[in-house]
Computed example of a mutant assay.
Amino acid sequence: MNPSLHADAVATLGAWRPADRTQESLRQAYLGFLAAREDACLRSCEPGHITASALVVDASGERVLLTLHPRVGRWLQLGGHCEASDTTLAGAALREAREESGIADLRISPEPVHLDVHPITCSLGKPTRHFDVRFLVRAPLDASPLRSAESLDLAWWPATALPPDTDDLHPLLTAARVHL
Protein backbone atom coordinates (compact mmCIF):
# COMPACT_ATOMS: atom_id res chain seq x y z
CA MET A 1 0.00 0.00 0.00
CA ASN A 2 1.20 3.44 -0.84
CA PRO A 3 2.09 5.18 2.48
CA SER A 4 0.85 8.46 1.03
CA LEU A 5 -2.72 7.06 1.00
CA HIS A 6 -2.67 6.66 4.79
CA ALA A 7 -1.24 10.18 5.15
CA ASP A 8 -3.88 11.54 2.75
CA ALA A 9 -6.67 9.81 4.70
CA VAL A 10 -5.43 11.45 7.91
CA ALA A 11 -5.07 14.86 6.21
CA THR A 12 -8.42 14.65 4.39
CA LEU A 13 -10.39 13.63 7.47
CA GLY A 14 -8.38 15.99 9.68
CA ALA A 15 -9.34 18.98 7.54
CA TRP A 16 -12.98 18.01 6.89
CA ARG A 17 -15.63 19.58 9.10
CA PRO A 18 -18.94 17.73 8.82
CA ALA A 19 -22.21 19.56 9.35
CA ASP A 20 -23.64 17.36 12.11
CA ARG A 21 -22.54 15.80 15.40
CA THR A 22 -22.98 12.19 14.30
CA GLN A 23 -20.67 12.70 11.34
CA GLU A 24 -18.18 14.56 13.56
CA SER A 25 -18.18 11.64 15.99
CA LEU A 26 -17.50 9.23 13.11
CA ARG A 27 -14.75 11.51 11.79
CA GLN A 28 -13.03 11.39 15.17
CA ALA A 29 -13.41 7.60 15.30
CA TYR A 30 -11.88 7.27 11.80
CA LEU A 31 -8.95 9.46 12.84
CA GLY A 32 -8.43 7.31 15.94
CA PHE A 33 -8.53 4.16 13.83
CA LEU A 34 -6.01 5.62 11.38
CA ALA A 35 -3.74 6.66 14.28
CA ALA A 36 -3.85 3.13 15.71
CA ARG A 37 -3.42 1.22 12.46
CA GLU A 38 -0.83 1.92 9.76
CA ASP A 39 -2.63 -0.76 7.71
CA ALA A 40 -6.07 0.91 8.07
CA CYS A 41 -6.34 1.48 4.29
CA LEU A 42 -5.48 -2.13 3.40
CA ARG A 43 -8.24 -4.63 2.76
CA SER A 44 -6.13 -7.15 4.69
CA CYS A 45 -6.72 -5.15 7.91
CA GLU A 46 -9.07 -7.64 9.58
CA PRO A 47 -10.69 -5.38 12.22
CA GLY A 48 -11.88 -3.20 9.34
CA HIS A 49 -10.49 -0.97 6.64
CA ILE A 50 -11.00 2.39 4.98
CA THR A 51 -12.96 2.23 1.73
CA ALA A 52 -13.80 5.03 -0.73
CA SER A 53 -17.08 5.51 -2.51
CA ALA A 54 -18.71 7.95 -4.87
CA LEU A 55 -22.23 9.28 -5.08
CA VAL A 56 -22.35 9.88 -8.83
CA VAL A 57 -24.92 12.51 -9.82
CA ASP A 58 -25.96 13.54 -13.31
CA ALA A 59 -25.32 17.03 -14.70
CA SER A 60 -28.68 18.26 -13.37
CA GLY A 61 -28.01 16.90 -9.88
CA GLU A 62 -31.44 15.24 -9.97
CA ARG A 63 -30.42 11.64 -10.65
CA VAL A 64 -27.93 9.32 -8.96
CA LEU A 65 -26.11 6.38 -10.49
CA LEU A 66 -26.45 3.21 -8.44
CA THR A 67 -25.04 -0.26 -8.86
CA LEU A 68 -26.81 -3.50 -8.00
CA HIS A 69 -24.02 -5.08 -5.98
CA PRO A 70 -23.66 -8.83 -6.64
CA ARG A 71 -22.41 -9.82 -3.18
CA VAL A 72 -24.74 -7.57 -1.18
CA GLY A 73 -27.75 -7.95 -3.50
CA ARG A 74 -28.79 -4.31 -3.08
CA TRP A 75 -28.54 -1.00 -4.93
CA LEU A 76 -25.57 1.01 -3.64
CA GLN A 77 -23.41 3.98 -4.56
CA LEU A 78 -20.26 3.14 -6.52
CA GLY A 79 -17.03 2.48 -4.66
CA GLY A 80 -14.85 -0.07 -2.99
CA HIS A 81 -11.47 -0.97 -1.60
CA CYS A 82 -8.38 1.17 -1.88
CA GLU A 83 -5.68 -0.26 -4.15
CA ALA A 84 -1.89 -0.20 -3.92
CA SER A 85 -1.74 2.43 -6.69
CA ASP A 86 -4.10 4.87 -4.90
CA THR A 87 -2.43 7.91 -3.35
CA THR A 88 -5.55 9.76 -2.17
CA LEU A 89 -8.99 8.77 -0.89
CA ALA A 90 -10.65 11.03 -3.46
CA GLY A 91 -8.52 9.38 -6.16
CA ALA A 92 -9.59 5.92 -4.96
CA ALA A 93 -13.28 6.94 -5.05
CA LEU A 94 -12.88 8.45 -8.52
CA ARG A 95 -11.04 5.35 -9.82
CA GLU A 96 -13.81 3.11 -8.49
CA ALA A 97 -16.51 5.35 -10.00
CA ARG A 98 -14.82 5.30 -13.42
CA GLU A 99 -14.25 1.54 -13.33
CA GLU A 100 -17.79 0.74 -12.23
CA SER A 101 -19.60 3.29 -14.43
CA GLY A 102 -17.53 3.26 -17.61
CA ILE A 103 -17.73 7.08 -17.61
CA ALA A 104 -14.23 8.47 -18.11
CA ASP A 105 -14.76 12.21 -17.58
CA LEU A 106 -16.27 12.25 -14.10
CA ARG A 107 -15.39 15.13 -11.74
CA ILE A 108 -14.96 14.64 -8.02
CA SER A 109 -15.26 17.09 -5.16
CA PRO A 110 -12.07 16.51 -3.12
CA GLU A 111 -13.77 16.89 0.27
CA PRO A 112 -15.84 14.01 1.70
CA VAL A 113 -19.57 14.52 2.05
CA HIS A 114 -20.40 11.58 4.35
CA LEU A 115 -18.96 8.76 6.42
CA ASP A 116 -20.48 5.35 7.13
CA VAL A 117 -19.27 2.29 9.02
CA HIS A 118 -20.97 -0.96 8.14
CA PRO A 119 -20.32 -4.62 8.89
CA ILE A 120 -19.60 -6.80 5.89
CA THR A 121 -17.99 -10.04 4.86
CA CYS A 122 -15.82 -8.90 1.98
CA SER A 123 -12.94 -10.46 0.09
CA LEU A 124 -11.28 -11.65 3.30
CA GLY A 125 -14.08 -14.18 3.73
CA LYS A 126 -14.37 -13.07 7.37
CA PRO A 127 -16.72 -10.58 9.02
CA THR A 128 -15.13 -7.14 9.09
CA ARG A 129 -16.15 -3.48 8.80
CA HIS A 130 -15.87 -0.94 6.03
CA PHE A 131 -15.02 2.56 7.19
CA ASP A 132 -16.44 4.19 4.07
CA VAL A 133 -15.43 7.72 3.08
CA ARG A 134 -17.98 9.04 0.61
CA PHE A 135 -17.42 11.70 -2.04
CA LEU A 136 -19.67 13.59 -4.47
CA VAL A 137 -18.90 12.89 -8.13
CA ARG A 138 -20.51 14.69 -11.06
CA ALA A 139 -21.13 13.11 -14.43
CA PRO A 140 -21.05 15.16 -17.62
CA LEU A 141 -24.19 16.05 -19.55
CA ASP A 142 -25.70 13.00 -21.30
CA ALA A 143 -23.29 10.57 -19.61
CA SER A 144 -24.05 7.02 -20.64
CA PRO A 145 -22.92 4.48 -18.04
CA LEU A 146 -21.66 1.04 -19.00
CA ARG A 147 -22.10 -1.77 -16.48
CA SER A 148 -18.89 -3.48 -15.39
CA ALA A 149 -18.38 -7.08 -14.32
CA GLU A 150 -18.51 -5.82 -10.70
CA SER A 151 -22.24 -5.14 -10.98
CA LEU A 152 -25.46 -7.03 -11.68
CA ASP A 153 -27.03 -3.81 -12.98
CA LEU A 154 -26.27 -0.12 -13.20
CA ALA A 155 -28.92 2.58 -13.53
CA TRP A 156 -29.76 6.23 -13.04
CA TRP A 157 -32.40 6.77 -10.34
CA PRO A 158 -34.25 9.98 -9.47
CA ALA A 159 -32.74 11.21 -6.19
CA THR A 160 -36.29 11.53 -4.88
CA ALA A 161 -37.37 8.01 -5.94
CA LEU A 162 -34.68 5.48 -5.09
CA PRO A 163 -35.22 1.74 -5.47
CA PRO A 164 -36.55 -0.32 -2.53
CA ASP A 165 -34.23 -1.23 0.36
CA THR A 166 -32.03 1.87 0.04
CA ASP A 167 -33.06 3.78 3.16
CA ASP A 168 -29.43 3.79 4.30
CA LEU A 169 -28.57 5.98 1.28
CA HIS A 170 -30.80 8.84 2.43
CA PRO A 171 -28.26 10.33 4.87
CA LEU A 172 -25.66 10.32 2.07
CA LEU A 173 -28.07 12.03 -0.33
CA THR A 174 -29.01 14.62 2.31
CA ALA A 175 -25.34 15.38 2.98
CA ALA A 176 -24.56 15.62 -0.75
CA ARG A 177 -27.47 17.97 -1.54
CA VAL A 178 -25.70 20.75 0.37
CA HIS A 179 -22.93 20.61 -2.27
CA LEU A 180 -25.14 20.51 -5.38
Rank of each mutant, 00 (worst) to 15 (best):
A9F: 07
T22G: 10
D105F: 02
V56N: 07
A92R: 06
L146A: 05
L34K: 08
A15D: 14
G125K: 09
T166V: 03
L154C: 05
G32D: 14
L172E: 04
T166D: 04
R107N: 12
A36R: 15
L66P: 05
T22P: 00
D39W: 01
D86P: 05
L173R: 02
R98K: 15
F131V: 01
R177Y: 02
L136A: 11
S60P: 00
S109H: 13
C45E: 05
E83W: 12
L169G: 04
V117K: 09
L115C: 02
G32H: 10
L78N: 01
P112D: 02
L26F: 13
C122Q: 07
L31A: 08
D142E: 13
A11Q: 14
A155G: 04
S109L: 14
P3C: 13
R98Y: 03
S144Y: 00
G79E: 05
T12G: 03
L152H: 09
R17P: 00
R129L: 08
A92M: 06
P18A: 12
M1K: 08
D165Q: 15
S144V: 09
Q28N: 12
P119W: 07
T51E: 11
T51A: 06
A7M: 10
D39N: 14
A149Q: 13
A159D: 07
A11L: 12
